[in-house]
């Protein structure tokens, strides 16, 4: 009998609305431990909303989110950081006027993490030597790729068991896109559980093991990424291959 992969995150019938506009219409999916799961889809499909709802930044209207079997749907975002869920948001969302090091340190803001802040900092610097070189610089003066590294570094500072990456390659030059996805692969190889959202569908499916296709607030398709990469609908709608 094949081993059933253990699920870290289980999302069931999740519904989110902004005022009168419903954005998520009861989506269900799961994130497998120690693997990369991705959500792909076009602009406005609800991918970022999904991640924000899991991070607890957005109120949920219906459905449930479970982490390791325990419901976290009603917890404030701070409690979810405490349960080691980290979000690397779309557009990086750094503090432009703070130094790179202070940006990273803020990833360890929770009192439970502070004692290990400097240990985690040296780990992040090992992973991103370029951030160490620029640690005294203001984050706003970094290049796009370095800002993305800083945002990922901040996420790693909170010792995540689930790392959510929202459009990590957005607005980056092709060579940097390759570099960032290489880094994600490295982090995944160390056993991190990753939920990746991307518009760069080719790279996103290649780096992930499982994938879901999201269309106008619903999950249209799900399965192993390799299968999706060869799926006729995905090829036609997202990869431009007939």
């Amino acid at each position: 009998m094949p081993e059933v992969p253990e699920k870290l995150l289980l999302v069931e019938n999740l519904e989110v609305r902004y005022g009168a506009t419903q954005v998520l219409w009861g989506i269900s999916f799961s994130v497998v431990k120690h693997a990369v799961t991705c959500i792909i889809g076009s602009n406005g499909a609800g991918k970022t909303t999904t991640l924000n709802a899991i991070a607890g930044v957005l109120p949920v209207k219906g459905g449930s989110i479970r982490l390791d079997g325990k419901p976290i749907t009603a917890l404030p975002s701070r409690e979810r950081v405490k349960r080691h869920i980290a979000l690397v948001p779309e557009g990086r969302q750094l503090w432009a006027g703070m130094s790179v090091e202070d940006n990273l340190l803020m990833g360890c803001y929770l009192p439970a993490l502070r004692s290990r802040a400097h240990l985690n900092l040296s780990r992040v610097y090992d992973l991103f030597p370029r951030l160490k070189e620029r640690r005294r610089q203001l984050a706003g003066t970094l290049s796009g790729g370095e800002q993305q590294m800083c945002a990922i570094g901040r996420g790693l500072m909170s010792e995540p068991q689930l790392l959510m990456l929202d459009e990590p390659s957005l607005g980056l030059a092709p060579i940097l896109v390759e570099e960032i996805f290489g880094l994600i692969r490295d982090i995944a190889r160390q056993g991190m559980t990753i939920l990746l959202v991307g518009q760069n569908i080719h790279y996103t499916l290649q780096v992930s093991t499982y994938g879901y296709v999201m269309e106008v607030g619903k999950i249209a398709l799900g399965g192993p990424s390799e299968m999706l990469l060869n799926h006729e609908h995905v090829r036609r709608a997202y990869l431009g291959i007939a």
């Binding site: 991070a55 975002s77 405490k82």
Partner: peptide, 8 residues
């Protein structure tokens, strides 16, 4: 927003 994400 970023402050909320890290648990402030």
């Amino acid at each position: 927003y970023a402050a909320q994400i890290v648990g402030v």
